[in-house]
Write a protein that binds this DNA or RNA. Structure first.
Length: 761
DNA sequence: GCCCCTACTTAGCAGAGAGGGA
DNA sequence: TCCCTCTCTGCTAAGTAGGGGC
């Protein structure tokens, strides 16, 4: 691709943070990437790459193990003397065939440095048809093209500056970049948050000083004016928006072409998608809730910070020119392709496989199978924890109550949190103040859970749970103290392992979510239209989301949208009444022969009818005026003569006439029938159509209200066994496309291909 | 037994893109 | 066809779990 072209097209694209993006730095020897030491990174010396073979199990070990297993299976088969095909044996045959193919493929000469990830329209890899019980080895061979670095900061035009005390500030480029992080997000809630402002400002001042200071001494945040920077980025957004569809397509296709090679890797010789192949761009840390570090500067990541993981015999992707990778690893017991450490939270970040990869799919499948297994143990677990509500050992009581809460209310485990994180809790970290007891057995839970989402529930609990909670809160305990002072998720999980290896607190959430979904789906009658069935499926999904406390912020447009739909429904109802009045105009006797049909004729008060009429007329006027303006706007750009004002007047005049007609109707309740061809039958059929539209709109409104603060996606993506959805789709004859988006269909291909209409969780 | 670290899953948000109504 | 709304997708923060070292 022409580098200049890429520069100019990409200059109009935008990064996640809302910054204009120039070119993406690749690791294909792009010389434009200079280490300017942005955000305190010194110029890094070129050092030899450290290469470690960090395998806990070598591929030789893997081969040996595999061989042994094969022999064992072979023996087993003969012992049983059956001809039943063994999945593993089939897999072995398949694998050896595939291996031959693979070797051939990998021997194909590649372009000098890039591994080609050709899509030879090969069949989708049906990993779920193979046995694989080796969790330890994540891959046998792994080749990839490295990671994509974010674009460098594009200096602001000379007239765009930060102002301090109304004076323009000349900032060192590194500090300008940070000022831009803030300036670009001036209209967000983060930028209004004092903690965010403080953290940003203290890092910003440091960076200004570190890079030689500015022409003005910057001391006070309140004296800073970032508005010019904000306007600059807003105008860039407008330019981008105003491109023609063709231009936008062109830019996107160039971008896709450029990124193509990072999107795929060769996992055991097969082309599989990589998930987040982009290194996270620098910016301001957007912590959730009251995170003490929110607003701090997230530094730019360089190749020197990034370790890659791939096969020993895989070509090492060349780092951007003048740079080196931190380390090259060959660890086949892990599923990451690249890793680096983030400076604000000091956490490790990974580049992983995509959700539709065989590796992720297999682990998802195992997660749901483990949850299904819990079915066979749950009865005993429940019996045991009920017994232990009265145990003499405090730890056992705490364990019993915690297991109860996790089981019944789907609470998370609740690990310990550090001082420099948001104060959120889960089951084991619940404190005195999070639980209020109302005798005889009501408990109010009120705490911030993951992502600082509030969990508020007033519930009735088992009488002994109530008594125990009172005991766990007993003096000298006071606000701030742990409710479960003997318990940690680790202890609890170790206890759960006694029932079933691999059982942990989080399995209960998966189990209860999927169980709830199964139960809800079982209640749905197999009748009605596809649309109606989808609404019922969503309602079942919603039950799960509520159980898991998956929330979302009410969309800003929600209240207005609800109002609009309600208004529409009332308008349709009014139109329906008018049609019925017309029917009576044609045949008065019907009122006696079909009294029920005309029962609703008085359901609208004169006041409400008046209000509806006013709305309808106002809407009509607005529509006509807007269309007139739009048409003229278009004619203006074409240099054609504009439409005469009289034309608009004429149309508005007609609306006035209609308004007068409605007004008359308000008194007479007798709408005028304008066409001679109108018949009772025709009007009745129109009534029927309106009734259907009203029903649809009412359903839509209900759905909108119910979903306004509940996020359905999270449970669909992570908790509900996808085979339940597939079962529903097949049994109820609802196209899977109505239930799973494209990405979900890809992620859950294994479920779509393997479950039938009789599948049960 | 505790703490720290690594590895991976789960989560909401924001922007992009699709889709539907006027 | 255009515009607006809603859904989808990408992003990355925030959890869980478990292993290893002391």
């Amino acid at each position: 691709m022409d580098i200049e072209k890429r520069r100019s097209t990409a200059a109009l694209s935008e990064s996640h943070d809302g910054f204009p993006v120039t070119e993406s730095r690749s690791n294909t020897g792009d010389t434009s990437m200079k280490d300017e030491g942005t955000l305190g990174s010194p110029s890094l010396p070129v050092s030899p790459i450290k290469t470690t073979s960090h395998k806990r199990k070598t591929s030789d070990d893997f081969e040996k193990k595999k061989k042994k297993k094969k022999t064992d299976k072979h023996k087993h088969k003969h012992k049983n003397g059956t001809k039943k095909e063994n999945g593993n044996d089939l897999a072995t045959v398949k694998n050896s065939k595939e291996k031959k193919k693979r070797v051939k493929k990998e021997e194909t000469p590649l372009d000098s440095q890039t591994i080609e990830m050709k899509d030879e329209e090969e069949e989708k890899y049906r990993w779920w048809e193979e046995n694989n019980d080796n969790d330890e080895i994540k891959w046998h061979s792994l080749k990839h093209n490295g990671v994509l670095f974010p674009p460098e900061h594009v200096p602001l035009p000379s007239h765009v500056k930060l102002y301090y005390d109304k004076k323009p500030v000349d900032l060192p480029i590194q500090a300008e970049e940070v000022a831009c992080f803030f300036g670009a997000m001036l209209n967000t809630e983060h930028a209004q948050n004092p903690a965010f402002q403080n953290n940003f400002f203290s890092d910003f001042k440091k960076i200004v000083l570190e890079h030689g200071g500015a022409n003005v001494e910057i001391e006070n945040f309140d004296n800073c004016d970032f508005s010019k920077i904000f306007e600059h980025y807003e105008s860039q957004k407008t330019i981008k928006k105003s491109l023609t569809a063709a231009q936008k397509r062109e830019i996107k296709s160039e971008k896709d072409k450029f990124e193509e090679k990072y999107k795929y890797c060769l996992l055991n010789g097969r082309r599989e998608r990589v998930g987040n192949f982009r290194i996270e761009p620098p910016g301001l840390f957007r912590g959730r809730g009251s995170h003490p570090k929110t607003g701090r500067v997230k530094k730019r990541i360089y190749p020197e910070d990034v370790s890659l993981n791939l096969s020993e015999d895989a070509p090492i992707p060349p780092p951007p020119e003048g740079h080196q990778w931190k380390e090259i690893k060959h660890d086949n017991t892990v599923a990451w392709l690249a890793t680096w450490r983030e400076n604000v939270t000091n956490t490790v970040k990974y580049v992983l496989f995509a959700a539709d990869s065989s590796l992720k799919g297999r682990s998802d499948f195992k997660k749901f199978e483990k949850a299904r297994e819990l079915k066979n143990y749950i009865h005993r677990i429940r019996k045991d924890y009920k017994k232990n509500f009265s145990s003499k050992v405090m730890l056992e009581r705490q364990m019993a109550v915690a297991t109860y809460l996790i089981d019944v209310f789907a609470l998370r485990a609740g690990g310990e949190k550090a001082e420099d994180e948001a104060d959120t809790v889960g089951c084991c970290s619940l404190r005195y103040e999070h639980v209020t007891l109302k005798p005889p057995n009501t408990v109010v839970f009120d705490f911030l859970g993951k992502d600082s989402i509030r969990y508020y529930q007033e519930v009735n609990v088992h009488e002994k749970v109530f008594k125990n909670l009172r005991l766990f809160k007993k003096s000298p305990k006071q606000p701030g103290d742990d409710l479960f002072d003997r318990l940690t998720p680790n202890i609890l999980n170790k206890h759960l392992q006694n029932y079933l290896p691999g059982l942990s607190a989080k399995v209960f959430r998966t189990y209860n979510a999927s169980k709830t979904m199964q139960d809800q789906l079982d209640l749905i009658p197999n009748e009605g239209t596809v649309g109606e069935k989808v609404v019922k499926y969503n309602a079942a999904n919603r039950e799960v989301a509520i159980l898991c406390n998956h929330q979302r912020t009410k969309p800003k447009s929600h209240d207005m949208g609800v109002q609009r739909i309600s208004d529409n429904i009332r308008e349709m109802f009014w139109q329906k009444l008018r049609l019925k009045r017309m029917i009576l105009e044609l045949d008065k006797s019907l009122k006696k022969t079909k009294p029920y049909y005309f029962e609703e004729l008085d359901d609208l008060s004169v006041e409400e009818e008046q209000a509806i009429q006013d709305r309808v007329i106002a809407k009509e006027r607005e529509k006509v005026t807007k269309k007139f303006a739009r048409d003229n706007e278009k004619l203006k750009t074409e240099d054609s003569p504009l439409l005469p004002e009289a034309m608009l007047e004429e149309k508005l005049q007609k609306i006035d006439e209609l308004a007068a007609e409605y007004k008359k109707e308000l008194k007479t309740r007798k709408p005028e029938i304008k066409s001679v061809t109108v018949t009772v039958e025709k009007l009745e059929s129109q009534v029927e159509k309106l009734e259907q539209r009203i029903r649809n709109a009412t359903l839509l409104l209900q759905d909108k209200e119910d979903n306004s603060q509940v996020a359905l996606g999270t449970s669909k993506l992570n908790y509900i066994d996808p085979r339940l959805t597939v079962m529903f789709s097949k049994k109820y004859d609802v196209p899977i496309e109505k239930l799973f988006s494209k990405t979900l269909r890809e992620k859950f291909a294994w479920a779509i291909e393997s479950a039938d209409e009789n599948w049960t969780f």
